[in-house]
Design a protein around this nucleic acid. Structure first.
Lengths: 343, 343
DNA sequence: CCGGTTATCCAAAGCGTTTTGGAAGGTTGA
DNA sequence: TCAACCTTCCAAAACGCTTTGGATAACCGG
């Protein structure tokens, strides 16, 4: 523990009041005194105790994140690391701290409730929204500022969110493959009770339908997005009597798995079979070096974290403001994993 | 914000003192009253305000983590997500919360200082120790309980740490390859100013030397551990006049890159060239399904997180206790990526 | 019936801040 | 010169909890 305000004040022969005001930039303190106080504070490495301050002000200067662990295998989705890194940048610049809670899906609601009831945070980020996500109504009802990373289809009441245009993104990717002559296009998706995965499938189905291609359920897979899942999916799908000539993947890791399976089977990527993947632009999973490995719909999840945090801080500072929303478009980057369909 | 203790007490016609004691399990309160209080608290969803509580008790019931972002590319190492998930399990079980700060390498020391000076945490976890890491002396001097995930060669004074036996792990892996007849063994390592990477190289060099094989600097690479780095390293190394017949990799992602490069060159994994990788057992990066993809030195970083958190809580609760240490061995899992050297 | 326990409760202080409501002294304007 | 300001500071209350040090009443043994 460090110096306290009282001690600092005593050492300066000033009252705590004056020292507090001097440091917080209030006008009613002499310029000379202010400087004297600031210098002494620096010298003593004084930082106001956050607990005491938040008790006095009623604001915690902290944001809560509840990261869900997929109940099945307690998998923590790797996008969280980068999203949080982005949000963390914003927080530290604004003098906020981040408090994190990682809990199994089942305990999630309680985790939000607790953080709030204990007065631990000024606002929250909602991660991984599902269809009709109950957390949104809950937080609205509790009156806590929050921003959802993603959206929740089925929730009508307005709320603040930041999302990428998953539908459009996968629609365009599908159209791109269709233009290359592909007709048998597989979708290797995340779990479709997750909102983002559902929207991606919708976009994919829409593009197919508009092009007069009947969506084939046999070509759609969904699971936790791991490399192994990608491998299994591609292996299975290539065994079909009428196998796909192109794959749409929901994550880089899945795409790795797809590639491994395809290569195992002696299929040339970008020649015999095409692959487009979504790329969250994770810092440790770059899509190739100079030339992109995969053709990809790309959007930086880190940037999303930065922006979502900014939105949240804004709603905290102007509580009466109506909900903020932000829809980010992805960019379609052409790499070496796509080519014309062989006929 | 929720109900306050005073309100709850008033609604029960009791003093705040009694309500507090009833809820905190002190003996000097009638069993009947206690039940009445507990019930009312549940009904009102009362949770004590953490800020107020920690102000009163002097303990925050919070642990600080400072996650470094590699200064070059601001990469956040994916192992952190799983480590933190593990630590988080322990924390929530013990009623602690986790406060996170993600900062560029350069600002790291200040981030620790701030958290402590502001009285935001009861203890800290030190991530990613480098050789002769200054944070250890700093925290020791500040008198804050902490546990290092890893160790720091060059720091003599005792401190609490939890580490895997990197040296032994890579020594064994190297010996394994030597026994298979490999002599040209490449090391594709993390950045060697990181303690773990340095220890791995030492283990590797020791095994080679003991076997009478001269370590060849041309066969050692180090960088941020991404897939792309693995690909580049393998591509380069295979171009050598006397290319390696085996690779040692420091992470799963690097191994993915190695495999891609090798496959690109038409080399068969486990036949023409062998690969052993370290596997942190990340939840979203499983080493294959039923049968392991890679021969690997495996150790769950999530389990490490759980244990490190437990150690930290222990040192917090018994401050006079001497430093705790824990050295975890890895297990060598044989997969399909290794085989006898071709002669 | 009475001193001494024991069981049960409470008033008040304190944790480290911010903030409200002055107070003292100096300055200004007529 | 004197009321009416500023300017600059401070004492004390408040935030929501825990904890110290009683207080009250009931109970007990002799």
């Amino acid at each position: 523990m460090g110096v306290t305000l009282k001690e600092l004040a005593a050492s300066l022969n000033l009252s705590p009041t004056t020292v507090s005001r001097a440091l917080n930039g209030y006008p009613e303190v002499n310029a000379k005194t202010r400087k004297r106080v600031r210098d002494a504070a620096d010298r003593a490495n004084y930082h106001p105790n956050t607990r005491a301050r938040s008790l006095a002000t009623g604001r915690t200067h902290a944001i809560g994140h509840v990261i869900p662990l997929s109940d099945s295998h307690e998998i923590v989705n790797p996008v969280f690391a980068d999203f949080i890194a982005g949000a963390g940048e914003t927080y530290s610049r604004a003098g906020y701290e981040m408090v994190l809670s990682m809990v199994p899906d089942a305990d999630e609601e309680q985790a939000y409730r607790n953080m709030i009831a204990r007065g631990a945070v000024d606002g929250m980020i909602v991660h991984g929204p599902k269809l009709n996500d109950p957390r949104i109504a809950m937080l609205t009802q509790l009156g806590v500022p929050f921003v959802v990373h993603g959206r929740s289809s089925g929730v009508d009441a307005p709320y603040s969110w930041l999302d990428i245009n998953n539908n459009r993104s996968f629609r365009r990717a599908t159209e791109f493959l269709l233009q290359l002559g592909h007709r048998r296009i597989a979708l290797v998706n995340g779990l479709e009770h997750m909102d983002f995965a559902m929207r991606r499938r919708t976009g994919y189905v829409q593009a197919l339908t508009e092009a007069g291609v009947a969506p084939d359920p046999a070509l759609m897979r969904q699971a936790e997005m791991t490399e192994v899942f990608g491998h299994r999916a591609a292996t299975d799908l290539m065994r079909l009597p009428d196998p796909p000539t192109a794959f749409l993947s929901s994550s880089m890791l899945v795409a790795y798995g797809l590639r491994r399976a395809l290569v195992d089977q002696g299929v040339r990527l970008g020649r015999d079979v095409s692959v487009i993947t979504h790329d969250d632009d994770l810092s440790y999973l770059p899509n190739g070096g100079d030339v992109p490995l995969f053709t990809a719909t790309q959007s930086s999840v880190r940037e999303a974290g930065r922006k979502a945090a900014e939105m949240l801080l804004k709603t905290i500072h102007t509580p009466q403001h109506p909900p903020l929303t932000c829809l980010m478009e992805t960019t379609l980057i052409v790499g070496e994993s796509t080519g014309a369909a062989i006929r």
